[in-house]
Amino acid sequence: MIRETHLNLGIIALLIAIPAWALMADEPFIITLMTRAVVFALAAVGLNIALGLGGLVSLGHAVFFGIGGYAMGILAHHAQTYTPLTEWPFLLEGTKSMPVIWLTAIVASTFAALVIGILSLRTAGVYFIMITLAFGQMFFFFAISWSAYGGEDGLSIYVRNGFPGLNTLVPVQYFGLCLVILLAALFLNARLAKSPFGLALNAARQTPARVETVGLDPTRLKLVAFVISGAITGLAGALFADLNRFVSPTMFSWQLSGEIMIFVIIGGVGRLFGPVVGALVFVALEHLLGGLSEYWHIYLGILLLLIVLFGRGGIIGMLCGRERLHD
C-alpha cells in the first residue's frame, strides 16, 4: 500500500511533468488535454465536498458548471459585441477580465446552490438525487430556449479572456493558471475536511441524530457544504468555457452531472485527490479510446462497473487502502 500523501505528491508531479514534456516536445494539444483534465478535476473537487464529506448524491452539479460557463459566455459576449448587459437601473458592461468573470461565476453559482440546496435538502436519498436532477433539467431547457444568448447553438467567444500579466492564449500559460486554481481548491478542501465544520459535517453524514443531540443542525451543515461545493464547480465551469471559448446548453446537461460524479467515483469518493485521478483517467480514456471508437464510453462503463463492484474506495482506495485517521 502506498501512503496517500506520497501518491498525492506523485499526482501533482505528473500534473507538472506531462505539460512540461509536451511543451518541450511541441505538443500543444496534450497541454490542452491536460487543461481539460484539470478543469474537470476542479468541478469534481466541488462535487466531492458535497458527496464525499456531506454524503449528498447530487445529480445536478452541471447546473453550477453551466452557470459558471454562462457567466463567462454572457460577460464576454457583451464585451466582444460592445453591447451593455443592461442600461437600467445602471449601466453594466461586459468584460474580458478573468478575475471579474470568475467572481461572477462564483457569486451566481453560490446563489443557485443556496436556493437549490434549501429546496433539495428537504428530501433525502433517492428523492434528493431526483430533485437535483430535475433542477439540472430545468436549467438545461431554459438555456436551450434563451435565444438572446444563442439558445441551442450556444455562444462562441473569439478571443480567450485575459488575466493580468499572462497571455492566456498560450496553452501552457492557461494550463498553469488552471492548475494553480485546482491546487488552491485542493488545499482549501484539505483544511475544510479537518476543520470543526468538516468534523461536524462528517458526523452529519454518518449519524445525523447524534449531531442533533449535541445541539447542531445537520441540515444546515449539509446546506453550507452544498453551497461551497456549487461555488467551486461554478468556477470550474467558467474555466471550462474559457478553455473551449464556447459555451452551450450541454454544459447544463445531466450527462455532464453524471460525468462529474463518475470522476469522483473512479478516483475515490471522499478522497482528497480522488477527483483529480478520476478526471485524469477519464480524459486519458476519452483521448486514447475515443480515437479507436466513437463508442468508447462502453470501456468507461466497464471500468466504472469494476470499481463499484470490487474497489469501493476508487483507484485511490485500491492503491492506498482506507483513509488514515486525522491526528
Binding site: R191, S195, P196, F197, N202, Q206, G215
Partner: peptide, 28 residues
C-alpha cells in the same frame, strides 16, 4: 460516527457545546 476516531466523536460533543461549528480553516 463509526468511520471517525474515538477522539473525533468526543470532539463533536465539545464542538456542539461550544456552539461554534462555522469554522472552516483551522484543524479541529
Amino acid at each position: 460516527a463509526m468511520e471517525d476516531s474515538v477522539l473525533q466523536n468526543a470532539l463533536l460533543g465539545a464542538l456542539g457545546a461550544s456552539g461554534r461549528p462555522w469554522r472552516f480553516f483551522g484543524p479541529a
